[in-house]
């Protein structure tokens, strides 16, 4: 089974929010909710400051707590690429998955079910990139299979210094940021 992942080059990302708009347009998320977002982080002490920008979304964790806590099996790991998905016809809206996510990647859709990034499964199953990756004007986002050593994401992770978000929460996230 493949393990689809995203690698984002923080040196190239300018925080333009094109990925956010692309996702909203592609997935028609309701007003007031986003499946992906930008975080601007300032570190240091004035005047010696550094700023970094991260495009964030569901980490499609290898060990997803949202799946193990779901009482109906609505949250599940998809056969294709290990993408973490929600079957809205099985979701009862108990919100356990929302509470279980250390990344706050989920929200309750106004129609009553838990919703989040799908890695644009409807696109990637047909060989396309997720909408956010495909529109990035600086080409800072890469998408591919971690289990394939020849994939672009595997090569980048093998050659560049990188980090993931809150690895200490123990969910084995699959979104990586190049430093």
């Amino acid at each position: 089974m493949s393990r689809l992942a995203m690698v984002i080059d923080t040196r190239r990302c300018v925080g333009c929010q094109d990925c956010v708009v692309a996702c909203k347009t592609e997935n028609q998320t309701p007003e007031g909710f986003n499946r992906d977002w930008i975080t601007y982080i300032t570190k240091g002490r004035f005047p010696t400051l550094s700023m970094s920008i991260q495009s964030e979304r569901c980490n499609h964790c290898d060990d997803p707590p949202c799946v193990s806590c779901c009482p109906t099996g609505a949250s599940h790991v998809h056969d294709f690429g290990g993408i973490v998905l929600v079957d809205k016809d099985e979701c009862i809206g108990c919100k356990a998955c929302v509470a279980s996510c250390p990344y706050d990647a989920r929200y309750m859709h106004p129609d009553g079910y838990a919703d989040k990034c799908t890695f644009c499964v409807h696109r990637v199953e047909h060989g396309q990139d997720p909408a956010c990756v495909s529109v990035c004007p600086t080409h800072c986002m890469y998408f591919g299979d971690l289990d394939d050593p020849e994939s672009e994401v595997s090569k980048l992770l093998a050659s560049r210094k990188h980090y993931s978000l809150l690895p200490e929460a123990g969910t084995k996230p699959r979104i990586f940021y190049l430093e």
Binding site: Q17, F33, N34, W37, I38, T39, K43, L49, E56, D104
Partner: peptide
Amino acid sequence: PIEVISTARSPVTDPHV
């Protein structure tokens, strides 16, 4: 960090989910 600005925040989720 001394400041974190996130566009994930909306009137629905702010300040916490």
